[in-house]
Computed example of a mutant assay.
Amino acid sequence: MSEQVKQPAINRELLEDFLDAIWLEQGLSENTLSAYRTDINKFADFIAPKALLVIDQLDVQSYLAYRQDNGFKSRSTARTISALKRFYQYFVREKRLEITPMAHIGQPKASQNLPKTLSEEEVESLLASPNVEEPMGLRDKAMLEVLYASGLRVSELVGLRMEQVNLRQAVVFVKGKGNKERLVPLGEEAMYWLELFISKGRLALIKHATDFVFPSKRGTGMTRQTFWHRIKHYALVADIQSDLSPHTMRHAFATHLINHGADLRVVQMMLGHSDLSTTQIYTHVANERLKSIHQEHHPRA
């Protein structure tokens, strides 16, 4: 694409017609409209001096190949394709085009961002960090143990009510995203610390009636942000250098289960994923770990 080649004047009119129409029909935000304008203009620059309504599928494919060759991210290209699809669908609907050149253009495969997780040794160090001689430390120990044993989201953990915990059956009843309900088992270690906290530590933190399993130091429900700060504090105590996120323990739960041979669908159920493909990313994490172990220890790696 030559930088000296200019778009034909008709392109500006076409673009404004399109943006006005979708703004009136769908009330899209200024940010979305601006993104559409930018993406379509970049494509129009590439195909210049052709006008936007006289291109064909080959022009689109050439532009996508250009983006790939120049290292554009797949997410950015996916957004561009969506913008162009809507643009050409609009002019087909307005009978200014017979067919859209985007008809057989698919979305690029998004690169998978593997979730950051902790090794089993790092998890053990993290779990050993709270001072269980104090009520808050005992609470934090129980929370970390339950989190690692169950794979709950942090929001699900801090929102747990006493009625959701069945100590006799060693399960927690969780209402997750989209109000989807699931029963999640707890292991012996998590049950031990949970029972110990409920019987000995919880009463010391409660200042007025509450049914939250894990009250804050004010005696009320804890926020996600507060617990996240507690995790970061214990990571420092344990000298964990890995980057953490609020879902680090959830990722560790799933990855370590799969590392030890757990069935993917069982892990899916415990995590509360509606789609198995969401859970499959943990098999990639496990595979990456196996590769690194092989490279580190095999004499011919």
Rank of each mutant, 00 (worst) to 15 (best):
M1Q: 10
M1G: 14
Q4S: 13
K6N: 14
P8R: 04
A9W: 05
D17M: 07
F18I: 04
F18H: 06
L19M: 07
L19G: 00
L19I: 07
I22Y: 00
W23S: 04
Q26D: 07
S29F: 01
E30G: 09
E30P: 02
N31G: 00
S34A: 13
R37K: 11
I40D: 04
F43D: 04
F43T: 09
A44K: 01
D45H: 14
I55K: 08
D56I: 03
Q61T: 11
Q61Y: 04
Q61C: 03
R67G: 00
R67Y: 00
N70P: 01
I81P: 01
Q89W: 08
V92E: 03
R93G: 12
E94D: 10
I105S: 01
G106C: 02
P108C: 03
P108T: 13
Q112T: 11
N113A: 10
N113W: 00
P115K: 11
P115Y: 10
E120L: 14
E122S: 11
V123R: 09
V123G: 08
A128H: 09
S129A: 15
M136L: 13
L138D: 10
R139I: 02
D140K: 13
A142Q: 05
L144Y: 02
L144E: 01
G151Y: 04
G151T: 13
V154S: 03
L157G: 08
L157C: 06
L157R: 06
V158M: 10
L160M: 12
R161T: 11
E163A: 10
E163C: 09
E163S: 11
Q164D: 15
L167K: 15
L167R: 15
Q169D: 15
A170P: 05
K175I: 15
N179P: 03
A190K: 06
W193P: 06
E195Y: 01
S199C: 00
G201P: 07
R202T: 13
R202W: 10
R202N: 09
L205C: 10
K207Y: 10
T210P: 08
F212W: 13
P215H: 11
S216F: 05
M222F: 03
T226I: 13
F227G: 03
F227E: 02
W228F: 08
H229P: 05
I231C: 12
A235Y: 08
L236N: 13
V237I: 13
A238I: 04
D239I: 09
D239P: 01
I240D: 12
I240P: 05
Q241V: 14
S242N: 15
P246G: 05
R250W: 05
H251S: 10
A252S: 14
A252R: 07
F253V: 02
A254N: 08
I258S: 05
I258P: 02
N259Y: 00
H260L: 07
R265Q: 00
L271E: 00
L276Y: 04
T279D: 03
Q280A: 08
I281W: 02
H284K: 14
A286H: 14
R289I: 06
L290F: 14
K291C: 06
H298T: 07
H298P: 04
